[in-house]
């Protein structure tokens, strides 16, 4: 049994079938890519897995338990964290605060502890801050921790969003086009970073990305969607050779 199991997932918006009969599996330590032309249903799959949309049919199971019907914050607490296609940082909070929000659910002190500022509360706050700074160091953002997230350069914002997601201590991380808008050097650094996250945090990573080079280079397995249907699953080489995939991309050579 895989950690994340999606079976026969179908999502219908009015007359539009955004996703049909989608099957997917992901385990800890795996890096699985999800590609496909615009409107193929990639982000829809993420939105269902994180509870933003409810599926019309099918099931999403995390460690054997169905998470369908759970609300987004509950799903995050169960262990699925994500980033967004158009970054959704807390732009008016500092870089450090953005990450600290991720630690919110591990806070054990309550309301009165906060107001009375008990020693327990202070210890815990300091500990989380320390952890958050360590996380930022790994992402090369420690020296900007006091800056507002909205003032970061674009590439840093993307990385901060990943750091923030990791702060919730997920078992599965969903990355929605993390390389969008990055320059080639940043993309290379991002590839290293994603591999590093997988190994260091030993979590499963599910990646939507338009940059074929990046996907082909780091993902062990790739799923290709087109018009809500899965048209191919396999290694980079298998997928690249698949005639249906080539057709979906209008005959352009993949990769």
């Amino acid at each position: 049994m895989a950690l994340l199991e999606i079976s026969n997932l179908t999502v219908q918006f009015g007359g539009l079938r955004a996703l049909s009969g989608f099957d997917f599996e992901l385990d800890e330590g795996q890096l699985h890519g999800l590609i496909g032309p615009n409107g193929a249903g990639k982000t829809t799959a993420f939105n269902v897995a994180t509870g933003v949309y409810q599926p019309t049919m099918g099931d999403v199971r995390l460690a054997g338990e169905s998470v369908v019907g759970a609300r987004p914050f509950e799903i995050n607490r169960l262990g699925i964290a994500r980033t967004f296609q158009n970054t959704r940082l807390f732009s008016g909070l500092t870089v450090l605060e953005n990450v600290l929000v991720g630690f919110n659910q591990s806070v054990t002190h309550g309301f009165w502890g906060t107001i009375l500022r008990t020693p327990h509360h202070q210890r815990e706050d300091r500990m989380h801050e320390h952890e958050a700074m360590r996380l930022l160091e790994r992402f090369g953002l420690a020296n900007r921790s006091e800056e507002l997230a909205q003032n970061l350069p674009y590439g840093d914002q993307r990385r901060l969003e990943i750091a923030r997601a990791l702060a919730t201590r997920p078992r599965i991380l969903l990355l929605d086009e993390p390389a969008a808008g990055m320059n080639p050097q940043e993309k290379i650094a991002l590839m290293d970073l994603i591999r590093f996250i997988r190994d260091e945090f030993s979590i499963g990573i599910w990646l939507i990305e338009h940059d074929m080079k990046l996907v082909m280079a780091i993902c062990e397995r790739i799923t290709v969607l087109d018009h809500g249907e899965t048209i191919a699953v396999g290694t980079a080489a298998e997928v690249q050779a698949d005639p249906k995939v080539i057709e979906a991309y209008l005959g352009e050579p993949v990769g």
Partner: peptide
Amino acid sequence: SAKGLAFRAVREDEIAAAAMG
């Protein structure tokens, strides 16, 4: 405080805040 950061996270972006648990 760390706990109260959640208030401001809700202000900044509710969808992202929910995605952060």
